[in-house]
Amino acid sequence: MGHPPFGHAGEDALDRALQDHFGRRFRHNEHSLEIAESLNLTAEVRDGILTHTGEQEPATLEGKIVRIVDRVAYINHDIDDAVRFGILDPPDLPHDDVALLGERGSDRIDTLVHDLVESSQRTGDIVQSPEIGGAMLALRSFMFERVYLGPHARLEQERARAAIRRIFEHLVAGGDEPEQIVDFIAGMTDRFALTYVAELG
């Protein structure tokens, strides 16, 4: 909810286009919260949506859980996807971190979840142990360096940015308001965005 197509590249492209044309910013978590406001959700759920990423820390235990498990899920699923698509080979992964967390995605998730539960019980707060949390953050850094921002991703990111920019400029030229443009683009899937751009010619 609230995520534009093409992940971080799409969010960046929409943010830049909004700044260039309207002097405004786009953050998917803030946009998600705007959508959620119409759903009569509790303050705790809205806080979790807003703070699952970014600088602001969650105010609730539930929000703290969401913030950590969001990373647990995307890091491990993205590793599996990168291996499946030949972007990474399993031996490329940081050996010490994989040895600690587990060779397979399911093993890593199991280790991370157990650590989160056990560390949280010990401390009375939602936390990871320094060792396991550090290994997860090391894998996250590795993924940013090698996958999310790696050389193979640059072409796809440029394609994504160009698609978002083309759609954005088409909608601006058509007289759409910034809120309409953001809602429309942020509601697109990758496939829909690419089809839309192709139809624009």
Rank of each mutant, 00 (worst) to 15 (best):
F26K: 01
L137S: 11
I181S: 09
E145Q: 11
H8L: 11
G54E: 08
Q128A: 09
A59F: 02
M143K: 00
L200V: 02
I164Y: 04
A9L: 03
V127R: 07
M188E: 08
L139E: 02
F192W: 15
G150K: 01
G2Y: 00
R122D: 12
L139T: 00
Y74S: 15
A138P: 08
E55W: 09
A43F: 02
A198N: 12
G175Q: 11
R67E: 00
A73N: 13
R108T: 03
L139P: 08
L18M: 08
D20R: 10
I181F: 14
A17Y: 03
I79V: 07
R27K: 11
D81C: 09
Q121L: 15
P151Y: 13
Q121H: 14
I126W: 05
L88G: 04
G124F: 09
I35G: 06
F142H: 08
G63P: 00
S120P: 01
A82Y: 06
V172L: 05
H114P: 00
L50I: 02
L155G: 08
L155V: 14
E145S: 11
S106P: 12
E169P: 10
R25V: 07
L33V: 12
R191Q: 14
S141K: 14
T53L: 13
A59K: 09
A193Y: 05
F6Y: 07
L50V: 03
V83S: 04
G54K: 01
P130S: 13
V69S: 00
P4C: 09
T51W: 00
G10P: 00
D97W: 12
P91V: 07
T42S: 13
E44S: 12
E156G: 10
F6H: 08
L93D: 04
N40D: 13
I181R: 08
R108M: 04
D176H: 15
A186K: 04
V127N: 06
L50S: 05
G187E: 06
E55Q: 10
R146A: 05
V117M: 08
M188I: 08
I167Y: 09
G102Q: 10
V197K: 07
L155M: 14
L39N: 06
P178G: 11
S119Y: 05
R46K: 12
T60Y: 00
R67K: 05
N76G: 02
I75F: 03
L171K: 09
D70N: 03
V113T: 06
T189R: 10
D125H: 14
R154L: 08
G134F: 01
A162P: 01
G133D: 04
S129F: 05
N76E: 02
P94I: 05
V182G: 05
Y196D: 04
R104T: 15
A36D: 11
A17D: 09
R25T: 12
P130D: 14
L88N: 03
R67M: 00
L93F: 06
R16Q: 12
A198C: 08
A186S: 10
S32L: 05
D78K: 09
H95C: 14
L112Y: 02
T189V: 08
D81V: 10
S119P: 07
I87Q: 10
G86L: 09
N40Y: 02
L139Y: 05
L116N: 02
E169C: 07
H8S: 13
H152Y: 15
E177D: 13
